[in-house]
Amino acid sequence: MTIASNVKQCLSTMKGIEAQLSSMALNSLDKEAQVIFHEATLTIEEIKKDLQYRVLELERMEPQYSGS
């Protein structure tokens, strides 16, 4: 598996984690838990943005990775 494939797979996993945390924040009855889940979602969102940028860099540097 190439580096680009690994980064894209990680990005996909992070998107799933972000969705799960967001759902847990919405469904939790405990206000403190809602805040914690929401803060974790924001952290994951930042990581996701970094990974998206890295994917773009890899595709720019290595055209063979584009679209895969």
Score class of each variant (00 low, 15 high):
54 R>S: 11
67 G>R: 03
18 E>Y: 09
36 I>D: 08
68 S>Q: 14
1 M>P: 03
64 Q>G: 07
22 S>L: 10
16 G>I: 01
48 K>Y: 11
34 Q>T: 09
38 H>D: 09
64 Q>F: 12
57 E>H: 04
61 M>S: 10
16 G>N: 02
4 A>K: 01
22 S>G: 15
49 K>W: 05
28 S>L: 06
20 Q>Y: 06
54 R>F: 14
2 T>H: 12
60 R>E: 12
26 L>I: 02
35 V>K: 15
42 L>A: 09
39 E>C: 06
48 K>G: 08
26 L>D: 01
30 D>L: 13
37 F>I: 00
26 L>T: 00
23 S>M: 13
68 S>Y: 07
32 E>F: 08
22 S>A: 11
28 S>K: 02
46 E>V: 03
33 A>H: 11
63 P>Q: 05
11 L>C: 10
16 G>K: 03
6 N>T: 07
28 S>R: 01
42 L>T: 02
55 V>C: 09
48 K>M: 06
34 Q>G: 13
47 I>K: 04
57 E>S: 07
40 A>W: 00
39 E>A: 11
50 D>C: 07
49 K>R: 06
31 K>N: 15
50 D>V: 06
68 S>H: 08
12 S>R: 12
35 V>Q: 13
16 G>T: 00
52 Q>C: 08
28 S>H: 04
7 V>N: 05
67 G>F: 04
64 Q>E: 12
7 V>G: 08
33 A>N: 08
49 K>F: 06
5 S>I: 01
4 A>Y: 02
65 Y>C: 12
4 A>H: 03
